[in-house]
């Protein structure tokens, strides 16, 4: 299994992911790790429908995902790992999964969050999580689409690193 991209996007599978990233990274499998989505048959069915033919979607809870990620469960397939938020990423890191680089694709406007970029908004808790993860060695890059210019995180959040 080669995780070609780890993306944090609270809209999970949407236009930018399917139209922008999938053709570029040529992923054969999309693994969504979200307790909420795994329990929602509506969302799971829709996500399966939204990806091109030939791409499979697995929607896993955190508990199911950790052993699969640690042991490399999907053979030689190219995998896109989708997480709905920083909380899921932190949980995976705490459980022992290592990530080199994570794409911050989209954390959209919600109560409690303040915007730092067109596609990124963080709450206080999320900022704290970011600081912890960066200190732990995870590198973040912020690009909604592969063709965009990546903006370093410390430009968006002053005081990071």
């Amino acid at each position: 299994m080669a995780i070609v991209l780890v993306r944090i996007d609270d809209r999970l599978i949407h236009g930018q992911v399917v139209g922008g990233w999938l053709p570029v990274i040529q992923a054969e499998r999309v693994v969504v790790v979200s307790d909420r989505a795994a329990g929602d048959a509506l969302q799971t069915g829709l996500m399966r429908m939204a990806v091109p033919d030939g791409v499979t979607v697995d929607v896993l809870t955190l508990a199911q995902a950790v052993p699969s990620l640690k042991t490399g469960a999907w053979g030689a397939q190219r995998v896109l790992l989708l997480l709905p938020g920083l909380q899921e990423l932190a949980a995976l890191v705490d459980a022992g999964v290592a990530f080199a680089q994570v794409n911050l694709g989209g954390l959209h406007d919600a109560p409690g969050r303040s915007m730092v970029a067109a596609h990124l908004a963080f709450s206080g808790d999320e900022r704290a999580l970011l600081v912890r993860l960066v200190k732990g060695g995870v590198r973040f890059e912020t690009r909604p689409l592969p063709g965009d210019v990546p903006v370093p995180l410390n430009e968006l959040i002053p005081g990071l690193k």
């Binding site: 999938l22 053709p23 040529q26 054969e28 091109p52 033919d53 030939g54 791409v55």
Partner: peptide, 8 residues
Amino acid sequence: KRIGNGAW
């Protein structure tokens, strides 16, 4: 690009 990796 729409045809992708030919899996279909």
